[in-house]
């Protein structure tokens, strides 16, 4: 988890970190690749977490991380300095994952068992939280996407619905279904309502 320790959380209100981030982003916008590498080191953990949980597939997630940062580099001239760089970057990551999902669907179908097995092994030898990871990875795609975006990474239903090309109501329904399935797979009892 070395890279996790390098990630700076800019939501903690630290004005100095905000200033550093702003300076680094402006340098990257001007074409400074070293500044962009700094941004990569700072944010790769969050982007990879997002890609990994959206795709449920390790190798695909790595591809998505690479594509996300390459796409971000190309799009940097359009970045508004008043906006939040992490939020902007995460939107690019989601778009990158979703843009590639059709082509990857078959690959994911054939490898999901392997990846779940990998997650199960990690669960046995690592933290209890990985049980939840395995349960998330086993969710149907639509439910998983909404759970990851809304339930984990703080997207609004409006944003998630736009990214996924579904109605807001559908996004809410997916989240409800995801939580039900997750509870069942984590042996959290449901009761009749």
């Amino acid at each position: 988890m070395q890279a996790v320790a390098q990630v700076v959380d800019f939501s903690d209100g630290s004005s100095r970190e905000h200033a550093d981030e702003g300076t680094t982003v402006r340098a990257a916008v001007r074409g400074d690749r070293r500044a962009f590498e700094t941004l990569y080191r700072r944010h790769v953990g969050r982007v990879h977490g997002l890609c990994l949980r959206l795709t449920g597939h390790r190798e695909t997630a790595e591809d998505c991380v690479q594509d996300t940062f390459v796409n971000a580099w190309r799009a940097l001239p359009a970045f508004e300095s008043r906006s939040s760089f992490p939020t902007w970057l995460h939107r690019i990551a989601v778009n990158t994952v979703l843009a590639g999902r059709r082509g990857l669907a078959q690959k994911l179908e054939t490898t999901v068992d392997t990846d779940l097995g990998d997650l199960d092994r990690r669960a046995a030898e690592d933290t209890p939280a990985l049980d939840v990871e395995a349960a998330i990875a086993s969710l149907p795609e639509g439910a998983r996407h909404v759970l990851v975006l809304v339930g984990l990474y703080g997207f609004s239903h409006d944003e998630a619905a736009r990214h996924l090309g579904v109605a807001v109501g559908t996004s809410k329904a997916h989240l409800h279904r995801a939580r039900q399935l997750l509870a069942a797979r984590l042996d959290l009892a449901l009761e009749a309502s």
């Binding site: 990569y40 790769v44 997002l50 690479q66 390459v70 939280a129 939840v132 984990l152 990474y153």
Partner: peptide
Amino acid sequence: LRLAALPLDVAPPRDLWPGIA
């Protein structure tokens, strides 16, 4: 609580910067 306990940052298993660069 279990969802909140998940780390949002997950380091990739290898350095991806060389490929990006």
